[in-house]
């Protein structure tokens, strides 16, 4: 049996192997992913992001436990936890599983840690591919944990259907999330660690920032406009988790009912194809260049003999002639 068939057959070791091959962008991994692609599209994808230490992993653990308690109807859950690679060594410590030990032994749960591996835009693409594989493998809900809040997180959020932004009191700056522009991508906002002093202030700050980020929400309430709820949780005690799960479910219904799910999916596929196309065209272009020509142009721009736009124009013209 091929790797792809074994994955579709529910073999967990084969799935784990496939995820590695995909992450390493090996031809074998890409081929297997292509072979199972027609099985994707069933899972609900939930992004969980926020500043370091806000309790994302603890929350994801509780959320998955809650979802898995729904008896025979319980959805299966896959978790992808992304942590940053060290810019110095390229290594990483992936420690999110520490908070997810309650999920051990449940075969309806699959947890995978991954490092961001530095490459710009690369994390989002590798994560998206890994999520596709988990989707094809049959997981009903896929939770993606990332440490906010940079462009990479925003890109990853774009591959999720529902994005949960986690904040906590006492970060010294109640509007940290807002400044980073991550509020705009939130479908659900959570103030975790609500047992700590200052939680009320954080809730209030988020609610008022939200009114700024979603000015239309007030006027069009009652229409098919989603107003992100702001929830208070205490992940360490499992408080507020039912409400969080309900909000995610409600958002999903909203996406489906309003036609936004289809629109989001189309936008996602479009931008994914554009990114791939860009990369392939670039690779093809560069490999068609005579050795050293691109470097020579880089040097000319560096020496300010040539403006970047002019450099590109020349490169493309020479290519067309040749």
């Amino acid at each position: 049996m091929s790797l792809a068939e074994r994955v579709l057959n529910g073999e967990r070791l084969a799935l784990a192997r496939l995820l590695t091959l995909i992450e390493n962008e090996t031809p074998e991994g890409l081929e297997a992913l292509a072979a199972i692609y027609s099985h994707t599209g069933r899972a609900h994808r939930v992004g969980v992001t926020g500043a370091p230490g806000t309790g994302k992993s603890t929350l994801v653990n509780q959320l998955a436990l809650h979802l898995r308690r729904a008896g025979d109807e319980a959805p299966t859950v896959a978790i992808v936890a992304v942590d940053p690679s060290s810019p110095f060594s390229g290594g990483a410590i992936l420690g999110d599983r520490i908070r997810m030990r309650d999920l051990a032994g449940d075969r309806g749960v699959f947890i995978r840690s991954m490092a961001s591996r530095g490459a710009l835009g690369g994390v989002a693409r590798a994560t998206a591919a890994i999520v596709e594989a988990l989707d094809a493998a049959g997981f009903d809900i896929i939770i993606i944990e990332t440490v906010g809040a940079g462009q990479a997180e925003v890109d990853i959020a774009r591959t999720a259907h529902t994005t949960v932004v986690v904040d906590a009191p006492g970060l010294g700056d109640d509007v940290q999330a807002i400044k980073a522009g991550i509020l705009e991508i939130a479908d659900v906002l959570v103030v975790n660690k609500s047992d700590l002093p200052g939680a009320e202030n954080t809730l209030r700050a988020l609610r008022s920032a939200l009114r700024l980020a979603h000015p239309q929400a007030r006027e069009e309430e009652g229409e098919a406009v989603w107003v992100p709820p702001v929830l208070a949780t205490v992940a360490t005690r499992g408080e507020g988790i039912g409400e969080l799960a309900a909000a995610i479910g409600k958002h999903r219904s909203h996406l489906l009912g309003s036609g936004q799910m289809a629109a989001r999916e189309e936008a996602r596929v479009r931008s994914e194809l554009e990114a791939l196309l860009r990369e392939h065209l670039m690779r093809r272009f560069l490999s068609a260049q005579p050795d050293g020509r691109f470097d020579a142009v880089v040097q000319k721009v560096l020496a300010r003999e040539l403006a970047p736009t002019e450099a590109i124009r020349r490169l493309l013209e020479e290519q067309d002639e040749g």
């Binding site: 690679s85 060290s86 110095f88 060594s89 390229g90 290594g91 990483a92 410590i93 992936l94 420690g95 599983r97 520490i98 840690s113 490092a115």
Partner: peptide
Amino acid sequence: RDAGMEVIY
């Protein structure tokens, strides 16, 4: 990690 490995802890 400092030796460049990805360490699942």
